[in-house]
Design a protein around this nucleic acid. Structure first.
Lengths: 203, 203
DNA sequence: GTCTATATCCCGATAGAC
DNA sequence: GTCTATCGGGATATAGAC
């Protein structure tokens, strides 16, 4: 906590800036984020961040990396609580929606930052644990890689779509709407698993 | 066409501004859009738009309304080309993805403008034709409204998710990637239809 | 219906002091 | 490692002339 109007000397401005950025994004959206505003909230001048980040986008990348760690953790713990591969996959779809709802600034940052991912190797690395989690589909499909790839895409798309529709307010607001949306995502994943024969590419 | 540096007197600046806005959004994204830039491209001053729109957001709302009309048209013509309710639903999922790919500025505007929809009745009206198209699911489910509602949500979410993943570049670029992504959305819709029994809310 | 001119605000980024 | 000071740029929006 910086003293009001005082200087900020606790030596972890870098990390504090990431926190502040999340707050700003939560209130004003990704597009409303600015280095200046984050600095102001910490009681430092707008010049200070440049000791720790080359520019605005680099801070945004740091926020994204943190967001992806949280995301992967939520998906993993949902998967761990289920007892079959199919249930694990469905549970991750539900966790996907809950992450969007409960950590909306992080979700927005991951998917709407507008950052050119290829320019930030840090981000590509941060995505890997998330992608790895989707490999459970291989077990669901008994090692059939073609069907597994299709199922993986479909479940991911479906979970993402439910998350977006929830955020858009189509399912209402409040904790009960979150659970309702998550349940829809779980059910859709189960339906996709059940109907996965239709997913195989033509031919 | 405004003369270079000349005045703009053709009397349809309002409509021209919507066109220009689409161009700007196509090049810089929704968040890069500004009234000033759109004005500049038409050779008018930044004050001119205020004769036609109260503020920046009102122009953005006009763009969104136009985008929704195009969207509804694409979905409808895809549905018309299919011969069974189930195929119509699946065809709309494919058209959803194609719209995102072929009319990306419009898609972005609809889903990422950050506009508070409840404040623009014009937008709520513009959504109605799109929502109405999804009622084909009732036929797919033989009038079972509960399953139909769940199936409708699932297909919409899935199509939306595939569109987003395509835009994010996860499926590659180019016309062939578009068709691939659209095919995935169609297949996913079919899988959801096939597995729709799993979609019914618990109980 | 558009222009000129202007007021106001915010942002990113840098140089140099401490 | 942070501050002071500042530059340059771009946006929204308004007032008043034509």
């Amino acid at each position: 906590m910086p003293a009001k109007g005082g200087r900020y000397h606790h030596g972890d401005l870098r990390s504090a800036l990431v926190d502040a950025a999340v707050d700003v994004i939560g209130e004003r959206g990704v597009r409303g984020f600015s280095l200046a505003e984050a600095s102001r909230r910490l009681g430092v001048t707008t010049a200070a961040p440049y000791r720790h980040f080359a520019d605005r986008d680099e801070l945004l990348a740091a926020v994204t990396a943190r967001a992806l760690r949280v995301f992967a953790t939520m998906l993993a713990s949902a998967a761990d609580a289920a007892d079959t591969p199919a249930r694990r996959l469905a549970a991750m779809a539900g966790a996907y929606v809950r992450f969007a709802a409960q950590q909306r600034p992080l979700f927005d940052t991951i998917f709407s930052s507008g950052l050119d991912k290829s320019r930030y190797p840090e981000l590509q690395r941060a995505w890997e644990p998330v992608d790895a989690l989707l490999t459970v589909v291989l077990e669901v499909c008994d090692g059939d890689a073609v069907t597994a790839g299709a199922l993986s895409d479909a479940v991911e798309a479906c979970a993402h779509g439910h998350a977006m529709l929830f955020i858009d307010g189509d399912y209402g607001q409040g904790p009960e709407a979150v659970e309702s949306a998550a349940a829809k995502a779980v059910a859709a994943a189960q339906a996709l698993i059940a109907g996965r024969a239709a997913l195989r590419p033509p031919g």
